[in-house]
Amino acid sequence: MSESVLEASPLGFSELYEQYATDVLRVCYFYIGDRQKAEDVCQDVFVKLLTTKPDLKAGSEKAWLLKVALNRCRDLWRGAWFKRVILGSPVFELIPAPDQFGKIDEEEQIMAAVNQLPPDFKEIVLLHYYQGYGINEIAEMLSLPEGTVSSRLSRSRKRLESLLKGDDAQ
């Protein structure tokens, strides 16, 4: 997909939406835990794509979309800090497809564990393990040193192991 498609063609937008919008939406939901807000963020990301027509290299479109989405999620998360302190965080709910109802109980643990990670760790886990980006790519997307990304990834794994073992012990 070329830069000119991104700058001018509505067809380019359609292709990007078809290919990446669901991933962007699910990452947002994983981060925020609120379906409506996740949909709002996903919409904002694609509106920004249409209105700013960023100058991107072919193949880096998804990284741009996720970067914008995570920035927005972070803003929302920080903005809702007070509400969470007083009211508590919303329960992270799985949203399986209808034919998967009743089949995913055993997988809830890892999903819930990832959701319990602090935001800084969660976004790196989502980008690395869920979306398949490497350390250097994540460092570029989040404007962090590679060492910081590696360190957070390592600490995330330890935290997750601890969370999952704690569940197993129960």
């Binding site: 939406l25 699910r26 994983f30 949203i95 995913i104 643990q109 999903m111 869920y130």
Partner: peptide, 16 residues
């Protein structure tokens, strides 16, 4: 389980 996160997540969020 982390290595299987994409499959797990897509199944768990398949309705989204």
């Amino acid at each position: 389980q982390l290595d299987q996160l994409p499959e797990i997540a897509n199944r768990s969020l398949g309705g989204l």
